[in-house]
């Protein structure tokens, strides 16, 4: 029963001057965003939110997680996502919500004790909504960062064709399992696409090889063999060689070469290409 009365109070607070309040809210927020969101868009966003909030309160919602708030949450999520994508800061995003409190403040001057109580109550609801926007905001940012990391993953693993029938992947940087997986899949695909029978995996630029990276390498080499191709691993630095030995990883039946150049020479020989140095050749 008490809850119901409360809800009515909150609704009253927000709808005394109806449309007018929403307009003031839009103006307030627009000022804080310094015109970086179009007025028409902001107007639409905030009015939708305003109406949804009124609806939710009418149905007796008392905080952001209430069932009746689902529409409000959806709108807030969208708003936060847009702001995150447009490059606004978390405060610039949450201020849209907190600004509504400031809009209501003048109403308190001639308000009754009940109005003040309602205002405080609504303030708590709005705090919850504000925190919710910050959470959705950071979630979106994380998604953006993850997406960028994935793009980088793709970018940083080129498979290059060195010769007819010889391809190579130069690995550079830390090899986490996701990246190793991507590289290996690309390598196998490139074997098929180019009809190559020789592949070189160059790890000159890799600072450490642990058992998981080694396992990915071994699996790829076995898979390549099943496809009728041969792999050579090149560029194993002295420190990585010692670490692999100490770990106890068996690279026994894998062909390794100190440098990419040596690996290429071997691959060419295996594909029947003769390299002939011409005597007295001029360069």
């Amino acid at each position: 029963m008490a809850k119901r009365d409360n809800a009515v109070d909150l609704v009253g607070l927000l709808s005394v001057e109806g449309q007018d309040l929403a307009a003031t809210w839009v103006r307030e927020v627009s000022g804080s965003l310094k015109g970086r969101v179009g007025t028409a868009e902001l107007d639409r966003e905030l009015r939708e939110l305003y109406d949804a909030l009124l609806d939710a309160l009418r149905q007796g919602a008392t905080d952001v997680h209430a069932d009746q708030m689902s529409e409000v949450r959806a709108l807030l999520t969208e708003l936060s996502r847009n702001r995150a994508r447009q490059g606004f800061s978390p405060s610039e995003t949450a201020v849209s919500i907190f600004a509504l409190k400031r809009v209501l403040e003048p109403l308190l001057q001639e308000g009754s004790a009940d109005d003040v109580r309602a205002y405080l109550e609504l303030g708590r609801v709005l705090d919850g909504l504000g925190l919710f926007t910050i959470e959705s905001y950071s979630q979106t940012r994380e998604e953006i960062i993850t997406a960028q990391a994935e793009q980088l993953l793709e970018l940083s693993t080129p498979v290059v064709r060195l010769w007819d029938g010889v391809i190579a992947v130069p690995l550079v940087g830390t090899l986490d399992s996701a990246r190793t997986q991507v590289v290996m899949e690309k390598l196998l695909q490139a074997l098929v696409d180019t009809g190559s029978e020789q592949a070189i995996i160059d790890i000159t630029g890799v600072p450490a090889v642990d058992t998981q990276v080694a396992q990915h390498l071994l699996k790829t080499i076995v898979a390549a063999r099943l496809m009728g191709a041969e792999c050579t691993v090149s560029g194993i630095s002295p420190q990585i060689a010692q670490t692999i030995v100490a770990l106890g990883i068996e690279f026994d039946d894998i062909v390794t070469k100190a440098s990419l150049a040596d690996a290429l020479k071997l691959a060419l020989r295996r594909s029947g290409v003769d390299l002939v140095a011409h005597e007295g050749a001029q360069r």
């Binding site: 600072p207 450490a208 090889v209 642990d210 002295p238 420190q239 990585i240 010692q242 670490t243 100490a246 770990l247």
Partner: peptide, 11 residues
């Protein structure tokens, strides 16, 4: 060499 060993063990 020892750096690489320590990093690998940690990994």
């Amino acid at each position: 060499v020892d750096q690489t060993k320590m990093i690998t063990a940690a990994s």
